[in-house]
Design a protein around this nucleic acid. Structure first.
Lengths: 179, 179
DNA sequence: CGCGTTGCCTAACGGTGTTAGGTTAGCGGC
DNA sequence: GCCGCTAACCTAACACCGTTAGGCAACGCG
């Protein structure tokens, strides 16, 4: 269990990260610029650098928060269900659909792990790894399917009328008993 | 079978797109700017706009070329194998690893289908759809797994020592007989 | 009181995509 | 020969981006 991701930051930095998250989710990725974020806070862009080292650090903070929330949601999903893998996949899809821009930010580029809050990446992955009984290959295959479905859906790569619920169910069924 | 993707463009525009592809693959996505592309061609950025409407049109041309090449490679892979789905997935992974920056460009954002060469998207998808006997849900599940594996691998989301060949094999096996 | 820290500022640098408007070279028709 | 058209380039500028240097005001503390 990681320390709360934001707690490593100064209070003012936490406010900035919270504002950044609102901006990202409400106005999309192109709105997440240092200048627009600063405007939202009533200050100038250069002042942000007093609190966060650079834009990468800001993004890493957002990703840390996202991973932490995923860890919570996934742990709860497993806890409430007796079909843990299916429940996890449902929770995974749900997270991505509720916060598509944050999800994209979290996955679209290589992770700067040195900038993340320590432990959050492992914490987000642990529920699935447990649900596969510790089988890392199995967990990775399920994750790859879920991420592929989510991101292709977010990127509108499936035709408009596609029956994605069915595709999800088939994929989960097929990957369920892999050993 | 679509018309050759580049044939819709003027000869000069084709040269520009070819230079853009080299630049993208050799120097990475941040090198694909109008100014650096122009420099590569010995002209100024504004001159590119005489030949391509804007950067989106340039990217759409690159994506069209990529989809067309995928269509060819996938059709050949099926043709040479008696395990078409496994052969397709191997070809898919191979394409992405050989041209990671183009693959990223092709998949990282919603497609501007109105800017693509007509038919290329369908052509790239057809071999897999055929291999599943026309089962669209099955084809989509396989695609999602393959894309998820590829993009998580490109983004270095798996731990350094991860045995990805095994994960690929397990995923393919599991998704093979989905009905 | 003075000193260091915090939090903001202005101004600037080099980069991005893009547009307006101007110049040159070549070619077909008279 | 020359007119007009087109293709292909140019310079200059706009608004935006991330980032840095250097300055200023307010605060708590010894």
């Amino acid at each position: 269990m990681p320390v709360h991701a934001l707690s490593r930051l100064t209070p003012r930095a936490q406010e900035i990260v919270r504002a950044a998250r609102q901006l990202l989710e409400r106005e999309g990725p192109e709105a997440l610029s240092m200048r627009r974020l600063a405007a939202q806070l009533g200050i100038r862009a250069s002042s942000i650098y007093e609190h966060l080292h650079d834009k990468q650090a800001l993004e890493a903070a957002l990703i840390s928060v996202g991973l932490e929330e995923q860890a919570d949601l996934f742990a709860q999903a497993v806890h409430r269900s007796d079909a843990p893998i299916a429940a996890l996949i449902a929770a995974y899809r749900d997270f991505a659909r509720r916060q598509p821009n944050l999800y994209r930010l979290m996955t679209e580029r290589p992770l700067r792990r040195d900038l993340l809050a320590p432990g959050v990446e492992e914490a987000a992955g642990k529920p699935l790894l447990d649900a596969t009984g510790g089988d890392r290959e199995h967990a990775r295959a399920v994750w790859a399917f879920a991420h592929g479905m989510v991101i292709l859906e977010l990127n509108q790569r499936f035709p408009p009328g596609a029956d994605l619920d069915t595709t999800w169910r088939k994929g989960v069924d097929a990957l369920h008993g892999t050993s």
